[in-house]
């Protein structure tokens, strides 16, 4: 009986230990096989930690094995991929949010299907990280803050400082203005109708006057106008001839060697005339002063 108890206790303990070990391995690695190691250098604050899943084109193929913080601003991440999975060459590793609780995962994204695969212990290039829940929440928070600020400003401008009341007044004034404009438009319409009626009457009168015009008289008038125009053309030609002759006379007077030309253009003649006038002025002055020198009037 004692031996049987020991066996049962041993069985229960062994079962519990096996369950604990196998369960932990399955939960942590997805199986008993450890898989092969690959590396990637992500920037700080990527949010990775041990045990997080590794997705190859969306399929869970491994887990994050180790995260080593480096002083160069990177986190050297060792992750293990199941031996049944091959990572195609040209694959890029990125950190993506996994679920809505801020958990992260490594996403391996192949550029194209290829039979060539990345060997064990190789380093996979890193692509741009997707924004996480925290980042999106932060952006949402900043947007909410901005909206709140705008709402506060609107509250201040429109409610606290009486902007809404002003707006209502403006709307009331606009309504009154619209009413006045409607009235004005109706008045304009009446005026336009009256003008239209007057215009119609004027057109009718004009039509009547046009029908009463004598065409023979108009024809004779036009003939007279035409004759007058011809005479005016002849007169204009004569005038041009006269003008040409006058131009030639003036040109001769200006440039010619005749007495008129010399009188107009010779500065000597001008000076002589000016000296003569001055001389005559002096004679007139002297005459006024001493008239008896020039006028000797003797009656007896």
């Amino acid at each position: 009986m004692k031996k049987r108890d020991d066996v049962l206790v041993g069985i229960v303990m062994a079962l519990a230990i096996i369950v604990a070990i196998v369960g932990s391995l399955w939960l942590a690695r997805g199986g008993l096989s450890k898989g092969y190691a690959l590396y990637a250098k992500f920037p700080w604050s990527s949010g990775l930690k041990q045990g997080q899943p590794v997705l190859l084109a969306g399929v869970n193929v491994g887990y994050v094995d180790q995260v080593e913080l480096r002083q160069d601003g990177t986190v050297l991440t060792t992750f293990r991929v199941g031996k049944s999975y091959k990572v195609p060459q040209g694959t890029v590793a990125t950190v993506i949010p996994n679920g809505i609780f801020g958990d992260m995962a490594i996403a391996l994204t192949p550029k194209r299907p290829t039979p060539l695969s990345i060997p064990e212990n190789d380093t996979i290039p890193v692509g741009p990280s997707s924004p996480g829940i925290a980042e999106l929440t932060s952006k949402g928070d900043s947007i909410a803050t901005s909206v709140n600020a705008i709402t506060t400003a609107l509250q201040k401008e429109l409610v606290a400082s009486g902007g809404v009341a002003d707006l209502r007044k403006t709307l009331a004034s606009s309504n009154a203005l619209m009413l006045n404009m409607n009235k004005l438009v109706s008045e304009f319409s009446a005026v336009a109708a009256e003008q239209n009626r007057q215009l119609t009457l004027t057109q009718a009168s004009l039509r009547r006057a046009t029908s009463g015009v004598d065409s023979a008289k108009i024809d004779s008038t036009l003939k007279n106008v035409r004759a007058t125009s011809e005479n005016f053309a002849i007169l204009s030609a004569d005038f041009q001839k006269t003008s040409a002759k006058l131009d030639s006379v003036i040109a001769k007077a200006n440039n010619g060697p005749g007495s008129v030309g010399l009188a107009l253009n010779d500065p000597g003649a001008y000076n002589d005339v000016r000296a003569l006038i001055q001389h005559m002025d002096s004679i007139m002055v002297d005459l006024k002063k001493n008239p008896r020198r020039y006028i000797n009037l003797r009656i007896f």
């Binding site: 930690k49 869970n60 958990d103």
Partner: peptide, 17 residues
């Protein structure tokens, strides 16, 4: 299964023990 394995660390088993 995906949820079961999400963010698992062996310390959770140790914590329970």
């Amino acid at each position: 299964s995906e949820g079961l394995r999400l963010a698992f660390s062996p310390f959770q088993i140790i914590y329970s023990i």
